[in-house]
Measured scan of single mutants.
Amino acid sequence: LKKGSQVEALFSYEATQPEDLEFQEGDIILVLSKVNEEWLEGECKGKVGIFPKVFVEDC
């Protein structure tokens, strides 16, 4: 996944840490960066945070 690409949430993700990005199933997320193999940083609904890659798929 490249910076600036968009992904769609397959499942809702509930934030458990302040840096987490919370979203609902079906939301479109703009990928800002790759944190590591399992986590991405993205923006959704004006909020920025990190989230697990397994919760999303390429649009």
Rank of each mutant, 00 (worst) to 15 (best):
G4Y: 01
V31R: 04
A9Q: 00
K45Q: 04
D27A: 11
E25G: 10
C59D: 05
I29P: 14
G4N: 07
F55Q: 01
L21R: 03
F51Y: 08
V56W: 06
L30I: 13
S12T: 11
G4C: 07
D58S: 12
D27W: 03
W39D: 04
Q6K: 14
E41H: 03
L32R: 15
E41W: 09
V48F: 05
V31Y: 06
L1C: 09
F23C: 10
G42L: 04
E57D: 09
E57Q: 15
G26M: 11
G26P: 02
L10G: 04
W39S: 03
G49E: 03
A9E: 08
K34I: 15
L1Y: 15
K45H: 14
L30G: 10
Q6V: 15
G42D: 01
C59A: 13
I29G: 08
F51R: 02
S12P: 09
V35S: 06
K53V: 05
D20K: 03
Q6N: 01
E19N: 14
K3C: 15
F51P: 00
E43F: 08
E19I: 08
V7F: 07
A15E: 00
S33L: 04
T16P: 01
K53E: 08
A15P: 12
E22Y: 04
F55N: 05
L1V: 09
P18C: 03
S5A: 14
C44F: 02
V31D: 12
I29Q: 01
V56P: 00
F55I: 04
K3Y: 06
F11S: 08
D20P: 10
D58E: 13
V35Y: 03
E38S: 02
L21I: 10
E19T: 12
V56T: 06
K3R: 07
S5C: 12
L21E: 00
I50E: 04
V7G: 03
I29L: 06
V35G: 04
S5Y: 14
Q6P: 00
A15G: 11
F55T: 11
K2Y: 11
G4V: 06
V54F: 10
S33T: 09
C44M: 13
K45W: 11
V56Y: 04
D27Y: 04
L32T: 14
G49A: 04
L30Y: 13
K3T: 11
L32F: 11
G46F: 03
P52Y: 02
D20G: 11
D27S: 03
Q24R: 09
S33F: 09
W39Y: 08
L1A: 01
I50D: 08
F23G: 10
D20I: 07
D58I: 09
E43D: 06
E19C: 11
I50V: 09
Y13S: 06
L32S: 12
T16W: 03
L21H: 06
E41I: 14
A9S: 02
K34F: 06
Y13R: 15
K34R: 06
E57F: 04
E8I: 15
E38T: 05
G46P: 02
S5I: 09
D58R: 13
V48S: 08
V7P: 05
L21C: 04
K2N: 13
K3S: 06
K45A: 02
V31M: 05
G49R: 02
E37C: 11
E25F: 00
E25C: 09
V7T: 14
Q24Y: 06
K34G: 01
Y13V: 08
G42V: 02
P18Y: 05
V7R: 08
E19M: 06
L10W: 00
E57W: 12
I29H: 04
L10Y: 08
C44P: 04
L10D: 00
C44D: 04
K53Y: 02
E37G: 09
L32G: 11
K2D: 14
I50F: 07
P18I: 03
V31E: 02
V35K: 12
V48N: 08
L21Q: 04
E57T: 15
V48Y: 10
F51N: 04
E22I: 01
L40K: 00
V35N: 05
E22G: 09
V56C: 05
E14T: 14
L10S: 01
V31F: 08
Q6F: 15
E25R: 13
E37S: 05
K2G: 08
